[in-house]
Simulated scan of single mutants.
Amino acid sequence: MKKWIGSALVYLLLVVGGYTAYSFYAGDDATQSDGNHGDHQEEEKNGGNEEEGHDGGGHDEHGDHEGESSSEVQADVKLEGEEMTITLTDLDGNPMDELVVSHEKLMHLIVISEDLEQFQHLHPEKVSEGVFTTDADLEEGMYQAFVDIKPSELEYVNEAHPVMVGEHGGHEDDHVHLEPESQWTKEQGDYSVTLDVNNFSVKENVVLSFEIEEAEPEDYLGALGHVVVVDEGLDEFIHVHPREGEKPVFEAHFSKPGMYKLWAEFKLNGKVYAFPYVLEITE
């Protein structure tokens, strides 16, 4: 009997010991398996983040590109003596003169002194591929020139081009600070022109109506007149033509509040006059 009991105890110990050993090694394998699975998940997660980062970078680059100037035409303005030369090129540096005629001209050149006192509206003529010239009788000082063109296919942004006349080097005080005015009747030669403005807000288009005393505006470059507007820093340029009809009524949009100077050009009895006004545009 004792022998049988001893054998049973030995058998029981072997079973328990075998089960314990199996549990230990099986548990270790399971832990290693779980750890590898966790590492695989982390790699997939990191991989997904890296892909998102790549997409984000591509989007950022696209945004930076969108912020760049959209002009596909470059204009270079130079003055030698009294001759001003404008050279047009595409982004590859090739001559570009595929322009649409706008108000009877391929090019309108607006030249304004930095003190906002001198104004000239010129029309350069093509002399060679991509090159236009015109005579410019300018007093000594600093000017900004605006090349107003309409390329037939390429995008164009009209920007200011500095022009120095004489030995004048340009100083801070050349840039004036315009003051609001309340005198809306201006005189040039024998003529008086009164401006009526319907509003002074950037939130809606500004309608500019002109009343010319004792004269009727004649056709000038295919219109009853032209209005050129710049801000006091000569950074913003607006060139508008009148609405269709028999009255010189113009409509302009201002992108930001500030002080602006405009010149209204009319041809009266065969001669062109420019009447200057100052506007204060508000929010």
Score class of each variant (00 low, 15 high):
S70E: 12
H65E: 15
V100A: 00
D174E: 02
S71V: 14
T185V: 14
L91I: 10
D97M: 12
E66L: 13
E181N: 11
Q118G: 02
P180R: 14
E114F: 09
D115R: 13
Q120D: 03
E179N: 07
V101E: 08
T89L: 11
K186N: 04
V73F: 04
E155H: 07
V165I: 12
A136P: 05
V77G: 15
D135H: 14
N158M: 11
I149V: 02
S152E: 15
V127G: 08
D90Y: 06
S182Q: 14
E179F: 02
H123R: 06
D115C: 12
E66G: 13
H108A: 02
E139F: 05
P95T: 10
E104W: 04
S152I: 00
P95Q: 10
M84Q: 05
S128C: 02
E66R: 07
L106H: 00
Y143M: 09
M84V: 07
S69F: 07
G170R: 13
S102G: 02
H161F: 03
E153T: 15
M142D: 06
T85I: 05
E153I: 10
L106S: 03
G67I: 03
K126S: 13
F146M: 01
G141V: 04
D92C: 10
P151S: 09
E172C: 02
T89Q: 05
D92M: 11
H161L: 01
H161V: 01
K150T: 10
K78M: 14
S113G: 15
I86H: 00
G141F: 04
F146R: 01
M107F: 06
Y143N: 09
N94P: 06
E167W: 07
P151R: 12
D137E: 13
Q183D: 13
D148G: 00
